[in-house]
Amino acid sequence: MKNSIVFLLLGLLVGGQAFVLWHDNASMVSRSSDAMRMIHVQPMFQGKKVVLDEQMRSQGGDPLKLNTLRFYLSNFVFLKNGAVVFEEKNSFHLLDLEDENTLDLKFDALEGRDFDGLRFKLGIDSLTHISGAMGGDLDPTKGMFWTWQSGYINFKLEGTFKKCPTRNHEFQFHLGGYLAPFQSVQSVQVKIPKGENLVLQLDLSPFFDQVDWVKKYSIMSPCKESVEVSKVLANSFSVHAE
């Protein structure tokens, strides 16, 4: 009888741990199985991968350097012939070129599903803006929330570009705004080719070509220009299979 009590207590201890371990392992397995699909997000410039703090040259040959590139992608929906096959819940991703891990978007529960299209938003939608403080990638400590005026910064790009008539040729684009008429969040829809390793490219070349660098090198509040520039960026996404 004594033995059985010892067994019982021991069992309780070990078993509790075992369950937790089993539970964790089970969820780990499902994360790395075929059910999960990964999309790598890759910012590009002039046909090359963007590397922070590395000198690049624009089409016109002007040197430029990026120090910060951070942006939100949200509300991911996978499509087949225009119909929804998978919609990610709580779909908010803060991508930061400083942290490689944030560039790999993992989607559970896509197993056996065939898709040929992807819809998402560049930035954070208005409803989320008025829902109060949130955690995770939306936590206001992420440096992507304005303090003096409510609103997420949808897209942050900072660096230096020879064409900027500013001190040290610095530029800052903090694009955001969720109230009319300056709603900057943009819907993006792209085709997905067949293939295993999917890469969602954001080509920054059109942005650098279309901005009037002599006049516009700094956006830090919701405005007309923020909407215009956000549209250019939204049209610069494409998916490739490697």
Binding site: N3, L10, G11, L12, G15, G16, A18, F19
Partner: peptide, 22 residues
């Protein structure tokens, strides 16, 4: 007897584990 005991404790455990997790 011992076998039953182990089975019982395992069962209890599972219940305990589930409860504490949920």
């Amino acid at each position: 007897m011992r076998n039953r005991c182990i089975k019982f404790s395992l069962l209890l455990l599972l219940a305990f584990g589930l409860v504490s997790y949920t």
